[in-house]
Design a protein around this nucleic acid. Structure first.
Lengths: 334, 334
DNA sequence: TTGAAAGCGTTACCAC
DNA sequence: GTGGTAACGCTTTCAA
């Protein structure tokens, strides 16, 4: 393996200038069709591989879109990421992914790193950021989209839904079906803002209905999933039936609670209602099916793609705010 | 927002050369401590952001490691990805992710794209590649690791396990517990090599035990998940109990089958055993717990990180082959 | 239809 | 301890 093959090498081999090779490889029509074909062929023979780094450097366009997610190990976020990858990939853009592991502080460091790569846009999950992070982003002339939330004071564009409203759907439904003593099952109070906002949404909605204070069941530090839901309900035991309904922060947690409740002989929803969040696959396949809220993770991704395309095409001047909404999906656990 | 702030601007503001600024920002000890501090401060004041693109260009080191995955929307692959991100992030490396969407042909195009970014290593999921793809990779002097498989003819290093052996664990276990009429539930024959290898593993293992031919239950094109498993069993109906055991390509599929079987009143494992693959969370939390194979997705990620570190430190000369193995996890569905 | 020159921001290498 | 020079591979711009 000698030194890397560059356009100059290809040019030499074809007996033309690097400039012509550059144009030929980009299928520039001002280059003679025959020349183009020959250049292509010689490039292949020499094993030439285009260098995006050099291109990004010269043109000052990286071809990157930076994305932050709490975690890729969550079917909802993974679905949004998939939609982004596919949509932006078609436009020749490559995603640069950073995971915050559900910690707001981590976001700042992450974005700082991502920005050094000169992304052409920044897509953030959630609307809670440190002040430093806000400065960092606003100092740059860079399209920013916050998704999965509807922040009061957005950094730029927004594609999301109201976590509070979404939880209100659940509480309204539970109240309508006669439940009053609610318990919220979620992660410990801490750095996970999404969970905190959902919890607050349940509390506010319960108050509005005049329900007794919502009990808090702590399933451990974020991220919480199936096993944490199951473990915390096992720990509480049959005593958990003192509540009318468990309002869970997500479907996986709800499934864990459901499974544990069933194992200890509780009947769901007769003894206890259980609700989830996010319309994960497990909610539809579980037995009974879990009442949940659909937030359309893939739709969020697609809307972000559309918005970015509009931005890159110069069709978007004002900050855009898209509310994708959320919808109650009544299952068999309530 | 004027033109971007470069080292030259910082240098001018401090009254020194760009070279000194470069060194100062990299904490080069040959630069006076006082100077270093002043440079840092001025850089911050001016809102200077380091340009990795220029660095990557100049040093010919991108700081990227390219990774291909069938999909990030799979808890196992997501877990491996998380381990890679965390491990390599600590070493200052950024992951560049490409998804094949379970199609081998897609891999070639993807790798071609990823290579233009000058990654310092290439991590591929699976050991099945097109010939073009093999050439592409071998033409470059680039560390390559295939993971999640133990290919006969590897491209470079390998960190994985034998899908055939893993399925043999399942079949051995089923035979030992008296099952003989097996059906394999997986994706349609097609571009998903992993599924095909698992299917072949079951067939071979069943033959070795002298079992009747394994029935094939087609859950649709890859990727198949919970809902596909549920749907195909619903379509078959109670007739599915003609088999002793459903050997599923993954835990989510197994959970779908389990759920559908339960809904139609079949008793698992009395009427029918069901096994999964991958030790997903749902296998442990479901009710009954699903018999599965643990392949330690996070361990694969960590081993790849260790191997890459060894490679970058120049401690690895020969191609390495790590078999992380797989272990039967007996649940309550068999 | 093709080519020459210049430069994107950084750092290796040498000089002082 | 600090600075000048050159170069990484590509493309924009202008000229032929």
């Amino acid at each position: 393996m000698g030194a890397r093959v560059t356009m100059r090498d290809v040019a030499q081999a074809v007996g033309m200038s690097p400039m012509t090779v550059s144009r030929a490889l980009r299928e520039d029509r001002t280059v003679n069709a025959k020349t183009r074909a020959r250049v292509r062929q010689v490039a292949d023979e020499l094993g030439y591989v285009y260098d995006s780094t050099a291109q990004a450097f010269r043109t000052q366009k990286s071809g990157f879109v930076a994305v932050t997610l709490p975690s890729v190990n969550n079917a909802n976020f993974a679905e949004t990421f998939r939609a982004l990858t596919n949509g932006l990939g078609a436009a020749g853009l490559q995603l640069l992914l950073g995971s915050t592991n559900y910690r707001v502080e981590r976001e700042e460091e992450l974005v700082r790193q991502l920005l050094t790569r000169n992304p052409e846009a920044l897509v953030l999950t959630g609307g809670h950021h440190t002040d430093e992070m806000r400065k960092l982003v606003q100092a740059r002339d860079l399209p920013v989209i916050e998704m999965w939330d509807l922040p009061e004071d957005p950094l730029g564009h927004v594609v999301g839904f109201s976590n509070g409203d979404a939880m209100a759907h659940i509480v309204n439904h539970l109240v309508a079906t006669g439940r009053r003593k609610l318990a919220f099952v979620g992660a410990s109070e801490g750095a996970d803002m999404r969970g905190a906002v959902r919890r607050a949404g349940v509390v506010a909605s319960a108050r509005a209905h005049g329900l007794p204070e919502v009990a808090m069941i702590d399933a451990g530090p974020a991220p919480v999933s199936m096993r944490h839901g199951a473990a915390v309900i096992e720990a509480i035991g049959r005593n958990v039936a003192q509540y009318d309904a468990l309002v869970c922060v997500s479907d996986p947690v709800a499934f864990g609670c459901l499974s544990a409740a069933q194992r200890m002989g509780l009947r769901v929803p007769d003894d206890l209602a259980i609700t989830g969040f996010g319309h994960f696959e497990v909610a539809k396949v579980s037995n009974p099916q879990i009442t949940t809220v659909n937030v359309q993770a893939d739709d969020i991704g697609r809307q972000v793609v559309d918005l970015l395309q509009g931005i890159f095409d110069g069709e978007v001047s004002e900050p855009v705010r898209v509310d994708v909404g959320s919808a109650l999906v009544v299952g068999e656990t309530s």
